[in-house]
């Protein structure tokens, strides 16, 4: 953290380092305290968060364009010694700077925000409870990070983040306006149903309080990924996504990525998820309704 950031008022670079997971635990705690004390600072953090982008995913699309034939032809001879070459390996993804850490930051803020919604001047008791809840969440995130790292070791770098993270990164860009007015059309829905091999029409009418807006056929790791986009009564964008999966079946689970709630499950050779900035109970209800609407 910058020296000035240790004072009462963290600077933008400290907040960005906080978002990037680059602060030591003690500096992080200082920022947490400063955030809980200052609405202005929380607002500033949110503004800086809006300067985030799916940088890596966007730039990864350039890798395929590297003129490998010419670059290899231009490699000097003799090439580097075997001992140097043996250290050549694809870099492991750095979890500290992963979107996961932004998710952690978002959760921290969310937790703080809830504290403030309850009332200004939080009691020590309530703060203690928040801390316990927060630690439990952080433990969970860490376990997930370890899991992601293990997966990353075995999988190509592009796949390391998994489809749920890719969807969460995309969903972050949606606003009420993105889905206003109805941009749907039966053609996209029919194509999506065909490509993913499931009748999706019932899912457009299944969720209470959600209005279906459109279907999109995306791709993740070469597999079709269907996104059905809805707008909630309150203008919150919600997405229901489906991708083929060869993983063992799993019951619904809740998680938070990029500050968005996710309920996900695996059934009948498909991974499914519902994502949106909604409370867990409402998201779970929506997931349950959508789950019933899909014939699996």
């Amino acid at each position: 953290m910058s020296s000035a950031g240790k004072a009462d008022h963290p600077r933008d670079e400290d907040l960005v380092a906080y978002l990037d997971g680059e602060l030591s635990l003690s500096d992080r705690q200082l920022i947490d305290r400063a955030l809980s004390d200052s609405a202005e600072l929380r607002q500033r953090l949110e503004l800086l968060r809006q300067g985030d982008r799916p940088f890596r995913a966007a730039f990864d699309t350039l890798l395929d364009q590297a003129p490998m034939d010419r670059l290899l032809a231009a490699l000097p001879e003799p090439t580097l010694t075997a001992s140097v070459i043996s250290t050549t390996q694809a870099p492991p993804p750095r979890p500290a700077n992963d979107w996961h850490s932004i998710g952690v930051a978002a959760m921290l803020l969310l937790t703080l925000g809830i504290g403030f919604a309850v009332g200004f001047g939080t009691s020590a008791d309530r703060a203690g409870q928040r801390e316990i809840a927060l630690l439990a969440e952080l433990d969970e995130m860490e376990a997930e990070l370890e899991e992601a790292e293990a997966a990353a070791d075995a999988a190509p770098v592009v796949a390391a983040k998994g489809w749920r993270q890719a969807v969460a990164d995309y969903q972050m860009l949606f606003t009420t306006d993105s889905l206003t007015p109805d941009q749907g059309g039966n053609a996209a829905l029919a194509l999506a149903s065909e490509r993913v091999g499931l009748p999706l029409d019932p899912a457009t009418r299944a969720a209470t309080g959600l209005e279906f807006r459109r279907a999109q056929l995306l791709a993740f790791n070469g597999k079709p990924l269907v996104q059905l986009a809805y707008l909630g009564d309150d203008g919150v964008p919600v997405a229901f996504c489906i991708i083929a999966s060869n993983k063992p079946e799993a019951d619904t689970q809740y998680e938070v990525r990029n500050g968005l709630g996710i309920v996900h499950w695996i059934i009948g050779g498909y991974g499914l998820m519902v994502i949106g900035d909604l409370p867990e109970d409402r998201l779970s209800r929506i997931a349950s309704e959508l789950r019933k609407s899909i014939d699996l």
């Binding site: 933008d12 960005v16 990037d20 503004l47 800086l48 300067g51």
Partner: peptide, 9 residues
């Protein structure tokens, strides 16, 4: 990085 984020935001 902070300047870049500020600009993008």
């Amino acid at each position: 990085l902070s300047a870049a984020r500020g600009k993008l935001a």
